[in-house]
């Protein structure tokens, strides 16, 4: 069992939408291994979405949160936390709820400790003033791998452990959020926002709106939005999609021509008390805020299969189509090299 040390900076930054609009965000940035003297250079470099946190069952994760402050809002001295959403049997100290434990002040560090015992897809987010900090972008994906996970052995490259029928060749998180333009504008203009007026203008997958969703990981035009939402596979590959919803609305995702099989919900296999297999198929996956779904499919014949939101008004950028929660599954005829890691 490994010890994983990861360090996240909490700060602010800017994201770009395909129509050219820039939006102020709050978020996390990976500062693992960054020398103490260089940490300050990550102020203002928040990412949407936050870095992937990944561990195996039995690993010990020491996650350090450093509050780097908001260079774009020097008047604000908000604290932050990390909440591992869904972690079973958590204690308040590591749960990141400021009202029930502690938060991290500007310029300070705090170590969270997790020893995951149940595999699956989770999420993490800041829980300080959560209606604001989550919408502003302090959200990230989290994968707990089964204890016997071994990416070099096909039978052990699984979502839920050997023998659970969750072997996969490739995996992608499909991380759903929305962006309310006024909320972000008010934030940078130092104005109070009435959250009951919440209205989504942009619908994002992995922090991007279409057509940016299909650009590569680390596309230089999107320095704060490193994650592509394009899914790639070879014909016949078993593909695992890890859906997370950290928006404030339900979303209904369909992949044209590719039925989905639900192998996990909320980091639990659908299994009855006596081991009954309750997994099921879906054509359109309906995901609520705070839920995760582990969904599998076998990549069909080579070609491009669009992914979109069956809440069709969400396939737009500020009311203009095409945009929003649209991406694609690109199936290759066996020419793709093995996937080096999630979403790679």
């Amino acid at each position: 069992m490994a010890i994983i040390e990861q360090r996240l900076g909490a700060t602010d930054g800017w994201v770009k939408m395909p129509d050219g609009n820039l939006f102020y965000i709050m978020g996390f940035v990976d500062i693992t291994g960054v020398p103490e003297t260089a940490v300050v250079s990550y102020r203002g470099k928040a990412r949407l979405i936050a870095p992937l946190v990944e561990a195996k069952v039995g690993d010990e994760v020491y996650l350090t949160l450093t509050n780097l402050g908001f260079p774009g809002r020097p008047d604000l001295d908000d604290s932050h936390t990390v909440h591992w959403h869904g972690f079973p049997n958590q204690i308040p100290l590591y749960d990141g709820v400021p009202e029930a434990s502690v938060a991290v002040r500007v310029g300070r560090d705090f170590d969270y400790y997790y020893k995951p015992l149940d595999p699956g897809t989770y999420m993490y987010h800041c829980h300080f003033e959560p209606v604001e900090h989550i919408q502003m972008g302090m959200v990230g994906p989290l994968i707990a791998r089964p204890r016997d996970y071994d990416p070099g052995v096909p039978a052990l490259k699984t979502a839920y452990g050997s023998g659970t029928g969750t072997e996969f060749a490739r995996e992608y998180f499909v991380f759903l959020t929305e962006l309310d333009a006024r909320a972000h504008e008010f934030m940078v203009l130092v104005q109070e926002y009435d959250w009951s007026e919440y209205r989504a203008d942009y619908y994002l997958i992995n922090g991007r709106a279409y057509p940016d969703t299909v650009k590569d990981n680390g596309d230089p035009s999107l320095p704060s939005q490193p994650f592509s939402a394009r899914i790639k596979a070879n014909t016949g590959d078993r593909v695992l999609l890890r859906f997370v919803n950290l928006g404030y609305q339900q979303h209904a995702i369909e992949i044209v021509g590719i039925p989905l099989h639900v192998a996990g919900v909320d980091a639990q296999r659908p299994v009855g008390l006596n081991g009954e297999d309750l997994s099921y198929g879906k054509n359109v996956l309906y995901v609520a805020p705070g839920q995760t779904y582990d969904v599998m499919f076998t990549a069909p014949a080579p070609g491009t299969y669009p992914l979109y939101n069956r809440n069709c008004h969400k396939n737009m950028n500020a009311g203009v189509a095409p945009g929003g929660m649209v991406s694609e599954v690109a199936v290759h005829p066996g020419t793709l090299p093995p996937q080096p890691g999630p979403n790679a």
Binding site: H85, G86, Q250, V265, D266, A267, Q268, P270, V271, G272, L273, N274, E276, L278, A288, P289, G290, Q291
Partner: peptide, 13 residues
């Protein structure tokens, strides 16, 4: 019948 259909969730809509 004898088939248990209960399931676990961390978020219930």
């Amino acid at each position: 019948g004898a088939t248990d259909l209960s399931y676990k969730r961390f978020t219930v809509l």
